[in-house]
Design a protein around this nucleic acid. Sequence first.
DNA 1: TTTTTTATGTAGCGACCGCTAGAGAAAGTT
DNA 2: AACTTTCTCTAGCGGTCGCTACATAAAAAA
Lengths: 198, 198
Amino acid sequence: MATKQRGRPRSFDRETALEKALRQFWEHGYEATTVADLTREMGIGAPSLYAAFGDKRTLFGEVLVRYAGSYGAFGGRALAEEPTARAAMERVLREAADAFTEPGHPHGCLVIHAATNCTTPEVEQTLREQRNANVATFASRIQQGIDAGEIAVDVGAEDLARYVGAVFQGLSQQSRDGATREGLQAVVDLAMRAWPEA
Amino acid sequence: MATKQRGRPRSFDRETALEKALRQFWEHGYEATTVADLTREMGIGAPSLYAAFGDKRTLFGEVLVRYAGSYGAFGGRALAEEPTARAAMERVLREAADAFTEPGHPHGCLVIHAATNCTTPEVEQTLREQRNANVATFASRIQQGIDAGEIAVDVGAEDLARYVGAVFQGLSQQSRDGATREGLQAVVDLAMRAWPEA
DNA sequence: TTTTTTATGTAGCGACCGCTAGAGAAAGTT
DNA sequence: AACTTTCTCTAGCGGTCGCTACATAAAAAA
């Protein structure tokens, strides 16, 4: 193998360019990432992109594979290496919390947020503020409960509110992904087991 | 008040049209809903839409207000009416699980999914399948644990996996919305308290 | 060198986006 | 009736989208 290519050699590194594309899709989502964005970040012209990666969809497919083998590989490792189911799941969540907030690359999970595209910053910010405001109302109500002595004081209202918010948002995502009402109620059953005693 | 309008009266009901717009934004997201989609569903021409609602962003703003006062109002009611913080949070989650899967309108929460726009069905489905596949690997690992006697048998592997998946997706969303690493680790602390004993 | 093969750069295609000018239609006012 | 005000319809604007034809450049093969 390793036979010399015949024609003019590619002027860019394919892996580097693919990583640049991954970052774009990760940060802005599939639709909101334009081919112009991609070519600018990858440092190549549109014809080179199409020659090397096919069309935009195919490129995104390659990005998904690359993500699964790099940034998204921690889940599989946790499942394979931890001795118990509990340890595996806890490690998945712990490493997710770290990975999702790691500096140097976009936050969150590509597979979850690649479908999230907002070209209009005002709309995106309005929605984010609305979500955070909802969590804040949770925190406020929980603080009332703490002040009333309902809840052990070793749990912060904001942490508890963020937890409820995360479950809430997870329920919304799962409902979109096809979960049934019974399935979601079972999730709530489990979620409430985490509630601290008085 | 109630003075007669001067010119030609509007040929459509504003509230009905607004509700139609809400459904479109809810189902397809802000960006993926085109003005052509809106005018078709609302049964009016583009100039009528712009005359009655301003531009697309302003219309979406009205939609958010309408949503908060109707489909999205259950949260506020729960916070106001339940006597304890725990009861309030549980009711929020229970009613969310019901509302998010209710037939007759799009699933999930508008405020969460209006930023989710995917015009390309293949991409949307690929991402959804990937997410569901991840939950399935969780379920598989958990079932191993149940078979090994690690976990009380009254908890199903699939329910537990969906719970972990929901928290996972919530972590991702919260990281996008600005939560810190410490904040997310605190969420994981709480999430793991729900884990069933052996 | 000449030929063949592949990559690159320019330039622009057709389709769709949000949005609107301008003419006509339908109401109240006089 | 004539006039004013407001809405609706047709048609299309400028801009951006994903994508590509075509000429040229750079390598191996003959």
